[in-house]
Design a binder for these strands. Structure first.
Length: 878
RNA sequence: GCGGGCGUGGUGGAACGGUAGACACAAGCGACUUAAAAUCGCUAGAGCCAAGCUCGUGCGGGUUCGACUCCCGCCGCCCGCACCA
């Protein structure tokens, strides 16, 4: 066996797998299926280390499951619509389509050398008309089911780029690209009725046992269920049509602490008032102005304006409360109107203090007397407090109990009703962009808004568009909008909004089960392959993508495109950590930071100091440096000394990136794959270090050398220790199997190091050594499939290692005949003994007490108690 | 503010309530070499320069024969949400 040359063997085995169609997913009723999916990439043009880590994890699972006898589906595609393609077209010319498909080709070419066990025959991009046409068909089905609707919504509008911006695209109140002040504008937008499923999306989280707790909690918070009372105040002095004011509260128990009511600036009453009163208009404009960012919200002062309108307290019509318009009331939560209870709500307290409103106390801490408050008293709802102004019992009780009693009491008095509210709002999917899935509807003067006929799908994006003028090219296309009404046949106009790209990624997992079908899915395929057994991706998609996918699967079931079992599409979810790297920084004369790529710096140790300098410099001879501080100061004065900032997510702007292609070029894919799986647990961040990558390559070279050495052994070499080798191998099989099952890839790799070290030191018989290294190859195969194939073949393994059944550990080899038991005296380890594994406890006890070291420690003291945990430990208490 | 998570050698990290620090990186020493690289071997939590002992998993308590692990209270860091009535 020659030297370890990853480049040669990796392309060789990739070709062999291709030729054998090793990874083609086949519907095989005789086998259990396993569907493993990594979140598909956006085709930016370059793969990065995060991709390598994500896809390697999926690949380990896929290859392992295949070896376990599952029929595996492991596909790959492209989340290909979206703004960057249009931005590129605006900046550099060209067409988003060419840019996108060019990037896909580039990225595919970068991914293939990783040797992933992907069924490439199922590949698609969401911008393929065959894909988005089926998405349009489902949109039409969803319209028919009432899951789609249009309404006016306030959006962030960029007046220069003439487009709607997402909240994340608004920076300091300005458009992220145009830098123009963003205006709030009301547009008619398309929505999916995800709110129909709020309760179910929440309750079904409990069933997702194999999802990270963190993600379930984040989703639950996002859906934001609350239970409260909705009721109407009677108003006085209000304009016609506003004689009642509906409010929602989660604290109806504090109703007798009400001192004012407040409405949002966008509340219908406020809007009515602003039309007739310039002062109100000025105030509501002020409310709307504030930034939408979190910090702006945080620091914004609470302001209000007394409308002069009064509401009557529902329990006592002689009590009148003023109605304010206030900037901290949100129109799209509850009813957009509240009653304020300053004593028990921080915001209401701040507001009441500012405007000199009364602060009536409803309850006090257990055992306390009523007193004026310097700050609001807001206990946990589970805390017991003494009610003073309760109306459903002035007892010592928890807020929870009081709220339930208050709702019941109000309902019986005919004041309002108990209501469950959700923060989750309907999903606005309209985008005024070109590079997205066209919404397949038609506007007809006679018939209104009508769905396109399915036989006319896909509604294709026109190719002849330009991006030299801001705005949506579909709007200004000379002919694309022209069409005929599917209902009456008259001339009509196409919708020019396209869908949010989150729609594209909300069902791609289902499409992979039948990627070329002329319907969105095919029942038999979806039935066989769904659900995704293991989904792997970044935590950044914990909320939106996963929640939308859960909704979409339900919508697909409701429209007949997925079986009932698939309404929760992802059985298990794993969120992997990031790949991080140190950041190398110097500063220019003006003190501005300059960042440097890892390959542009050199690090060495001088004494106990780690020094990083610019350039490819040879390490200095430590003896030549009499004064390290002076020497480093010198480097600093030259501008050569680099500041090392602790590891952070790889990002282009900080230049702390390592290009996977450079690593594959230098060390091969197996090294890259092994390294990203080693050391750190997969859910945590892993730090990429040059020395680590190099060390990995050295290790693989050692395995190669070991294989070579075993290959050179004479066939009749007897050696010794075959039993120990078999045991070590069995233990490794057991350990690695369990590690992979539990996503503890770092532990699997630690065990692989262990077995390799054992074999390197062993001197077994030739057949025993060959058997052991073949097993080692199989165990390595999920992480480093190429070198595994080479070793497997070289050592006489039959067929491909990738298709060989996973090794099983003989249980008899996993238990040792004798065990070493530590002996503790009063919980401190003092000695150890070796005993046969099934020796009765009483015998063990005797031997332990007779042990020389134990006798010495006991020094004749009486033994109070002795605990023998079989096979584990002995503890002597004196 | 609310919610979730984490704190172990120089570093990444192991450890069903049962020998803390597996495995690896970095480091040091040695062998081979004219030399270096590569390779191989050894050392390594801290302290008492050794056998051995003492102390050690953020801090303080508790439960237990026994606690990195479980419970209570602090401290620190990370992440998510955030004017949600």
């Amino acid at each position: 066996m020659s030297r370890y040359e990853p480049k040669t063997i990796e392309s060789k085995w990739q070709a062999a797998w291709d030729a054998a169609e090793t990874f083609k997913a086949r519907r095989d009723p005789a086998k259990p299926k396993y569907y493993v999916l990594e979140m598909f990439p956006y085709p930016s043009g370059r793969i990065h280390m995060g991709h390598v880590r994500n896809y390697t994890m999926g690949d380990v699972v896929a290859r392992y499951k295949a070896a376990q006898g599952f029929s595996v589906l492991h596909p790959m595609g492209w989340d290909a619509f979206g703004m960057p393609a249009e931005n590129a077209a605006m900046e550099r010319g060209g067409h988003p389509k060419e840019w996108t498909y060019g990037n896909i080709a580039d990225m595919r070419a970068q991914m293939k050398p990783l040797g992933l066990s992907i069924d490439w025959s199922r590949e698609f991009a969401t911008c393929d008309p065959e894909y988005y046409g089926q998405q349009q068909a489902m949109f039409i089905d969803m319209m028919a089911k009432g899951l789609v609707y249009r309404k006016n919504a306030v959006v962030n509008w960029d007046p220069v780029d003439m487009t709607v911006l997402a909240n994340e695209q608004v920076i300091d109140g300005k458009g992220w690209r145009s830098n123009a002040p963003v205006v709030r504008r009301e547009l008619t937008q398309w929505f999916f009725k995800i709110s129909d499923y709020s309760a179910e999306l929440l309750s079904a989280l409990d069933g997702l046992k194999d999802w990270p707790e963190k993600v379930r909690v984040m989703q639950a918070n996002w859906i934001g269920q609350s239970r409260g009372l909705q009721f109407a105040f009677t108003t006085t002095g209000a304009p016609e049509g506003f004689d009642r004011l509906e409010v929602y509260t989660t604290r109806p128990d504090t109703l007798l602490g009400a001192s004012f009511a407040a409405i949002a600036a966008d509340h219908p009453l406020a809007k009515h008032l602003e039309r007739h009163d310039p002062a109100v208009a000025e105030f509501t404009a002020e409310c709307r102005k504030g930034g939408t960012t979190a910090e702006a919200m945080e620091t914004a002062e609470k302001i209000g304006m007394d409308t002069g309108i009064r509401v009557l307290h529902p329990f006592d019509n002689s009590v009148e409360l003023p109605v304010y318009i206030a900037n901290f009331i949100l129109m799209d939560y509850g009813t957009g109107a509240i009653f304020g209870c300053p004593a028990h709500d921080a915001r209401d307290f701040e507001f009441a203090t500012k405007y000199g409103l009364p602060i009536p106390v409803v309850f006090v801490p257990e055992g306390a007397e009523e007193a004026d408050l310097d700050e609001p008293f807001v206990p946990m709802k589970s805390e017991r407090v003494q009610y003073i102004r309760g109306f459903a019992g002035n007892d010592l009780q928890t807020g929870e109990d009081a709220i339930a009693a208050a709702i019941a009491e109000c309902e019986s008095r005919g004041i309002g009703r108990g209501v469950t509210n959700y923060r989750l709002r309907d999903w606005g999917i309209s985008r005024q962009r070109y590079w997205g899935c066209p919404i397949p509807v038609i506007h007809c003067d006679a018939c209104g808004v009508v769905a396109e006929k399915k036989e006319n799908l896909p509604v294709r994006l026109p190719d002849d568009v330009s991006f030299d003028i801001p705005g949506n090219p579909l709007d200004r296309h000379p002919t694309w909008r022209q069409c005929t009404c599917p209902q009456c046949g008259a001339d009509a106009r196409r919708e020019t909004d396209t869908m949010d790209t989150f729609v594209d990624s909300s069902w791609y997992y289902a499409r992979f089960t039948a990627p070329h079908a002329t319907t969105p899915t095919i029942a038999e395929d979806a039935d066989y392959w769904m659900n995704v057994d293991q989904y792997i991706g970044g935590i950044e998609h914990a909320i939106l993508h996963l929640l939308y996918s859960r909704f979409f699967a339900r919508a697909m079931h409701a429209t007949g495109h997925l079986p009932a079992k698939a309404i929760e599409p992802f059985n298990a979810l794993f969120t992997q950590g990031m790949v991080t790297h140190e950041i190398y920084k110097t500063t220019d004369a003006a003190g501005r930071p300059i960042y440097h790529l890892p390959e542009d710096v050199t690090t060495f140790t001088v004494g106990d100091r780690r020094v990083t300098v610019l350039g490819d410099v040879a390490p200095p001879d430590p003896d030549m440096i009499p004064d390290i501080n002076a020497w480093m100061q010198g480097l600093n004065d030259e501008g050569a000394l680099v500041e090392v900032i602790p590891s952070a997510k790889m990002s282009k702007s900080k230049k702390n990136v390592v290009d996977p292609m450079n690593i594959i070029e230098a060390f091969g894919a197996d090294t890259a794959r092994w390294f990203v799986m080693s050391d750190s647990p997969p859910e945590r961040d892993v730090e990429w270090t040059a020395s680590g990558a190099e060390a990995t390559f050295k290790h693989l070279s050692r395995v190669w050398a070991l294989c070579s050495r075993i290959g050179d052994m004479p066939a009749d070499h007897a050696g010794e220790g075959d039993a120990e080798i078999a045991k070590a191998t069995a233990k490794a099989v057991d350990e690695i199997t369990r590690a992979i099952e539990t996503f503890a890839f770092n532990k699997a790799i630690a065990a692989l190091y262990g077995l390799t070290n054992t074999l390197a030191k062993a001197n077994g018989s030739t057949p025993a050594m060959k058997q052991a290294i073949r097993t080692l190859a199989q165990l390595m195969c999920p992480m480093t499939p190429h070198i595994a194939e080479s070793i497997w073949t070289y050592q006489g393994g039959a067929g491909l290692c990738a298709t060989a059944p996973w090794p099983k550990a003989d249980p008899a080899l996993l238990v040792d005949d004798t065990v070493t038991l530590p002996i503790q005296i009063n919980g401190k380890r003092r000695a150890e003994i070796s005993v046969p594994k099934d020796m009765p406890a009483s015998e063990v006890e005797k031997i332990a007490l007779a042990d020389e070291a134990v006798v010495k420690f006991l020094a004749g003291a009486p033994v109070k108690k002795i605990i023998v945990v079989p096979g584990r430990i002995i503890n002597v208490v004196i």
